[in-house]
């Protein structure tokens, strides 16, 4: 089984548009949407829900009022100000460390896993999709990304599908590491802006560490050709392949509004042709 991940340093570079396009250009595929903070891929791929499961991402303290003697030790030792005057726990502030349960002299505190979101397996036109949704205030984590990827693998195995496309988490922290590790190749979607360049450097370092082969894709390259050139030169210097440059074109948004990846909605557009060309190259890694 082969996995290709699509990532970007900052949000809004067009990562999901690219992932959605790749998904429809493949024959049989399982798509894993690991961008759980902004899970938008379903808006392009229209998954039909097959299976929902609860996801317990973190723990929170719960105080059993009938046991509590209001000694105040829990409150005094909590570093997160999560325990109120009335000895109830604010589950948003609680980071689940367990100190209150440790210091409680009457065992009135219980640490319980809390439901922080839901994960789904769905059917799409040419395969399956594994995705998730977090409750507000909950954070994406390496655990959830691993969960979504494992679910994708499970269904791929069951259905005998050899290809997985991962829409990775943005940023550079733990969820990104979990999106990248163990994949066969990664497409880094960047844009020629000051923030884009800055974030690209950080993400390439991370991929180098995990020895995942990077392909850089410059989206909307004609918005700032100088910056695009700067990115290309930087990649040459680093020995990283720039796999393609996509021009800015409003058809991408038109396609999105119509709920379809651009390669499917307007296949003859320049953007679509370039994405297809890029996919041909990248998919050799499958």
């Amino acid at each position: 089984m082969k996995e290709i991940v699509i990532i970007s340093g900052k949000g809004g570079t067009g990562k999901t548009t690219i992932a959605g396009s790749f998904a429809v250009l493949t024959d049989k595929v399982v798509v894993a949407d690991c961008d759980v903070d902004a899970p938008d891929l379903h808006l392009l791929l229209h998954p039909e829900l097959i299976e929902t499961s609860e996801f317990a991402g973190s723990k929170s303290a719960f105080i059993n009022k009938s046991r509590c003697v209001e000694c105040g030790l829990c409150k005094g030792n909590c570093k997160f100000n999560a325990i109120s005057e009335e000895f109830s726990v604010d589950t948003h502030s609680c980071e689940g460390c367990g100190v209150c349960a440790l210091v409680c002299p009457v065992q009135a505190v219980e640490m319980k896993e809390k439901v922080s979101g839901y994960s789904y397996i769905s059917k799409i036109e040419n395969g399956f999709m594994s995705h998730a949704l977090l409750n507000p205030g909950e954070e994406n984590s390496g655990k959830l990304v691993t969960f979504v990827r494992d679910k994708a693998k499970e269904i791929a195995m069951k259905e005998n599908i050899g290809k997985i496309i991962i829409d990775g988490a943005p940023g550079i922290s733990c969820p990104v590491i979990s999106s990248v590790t163990g994949t066969n190749a990664g497409v880094v979607v960047t844009e020629p802006t000051v923030s884009g360049v800055h974030d690209l450097k950080r993400i390439l370092e991370l991929m180098e560490h995990f020895r995942v082969k990077p392909f850089v894709l410059i989206n909307k390259f004609d918005i700032n050709k100088d910056k695009a050139k700067e990115i290309e030169e930087f990649c040459v210097e680093k020995g990283v392949e720039v796999v393609g440059k996509i021009p800015f074109d409003p058809v991408v948004t038109t396609a999105m509004v119509n709920g379809e990846p651009v390669v499917k909605f307007i296949p003859q557009s320049e953007v679509s042709k370039e994405i297809k060309r890029i996919w041909k190259k990248v998919s050799e890694n499958f």
Binding site: T16, A38, D40, H92, L134, P136, G137, E138, M256
Partner: peptide, 30 residues
């Protein structure tokens, strides 16, 4: 961006919050 802990910490105690979006299905969803 997003709706996680650091976001809540950032907007906490503001008098007003401006939400920036774009008129696309992605923008609306988020």
């Amino acid at each position: 961006p997003g709706a996680s802990c650091p976001v809540i910490e950032s907007v906490k105690n503001s008098d007003f919050c401006i939400l920036v979006t774009e008129p696309t299905p992605f923008g609306l969803h988020d």
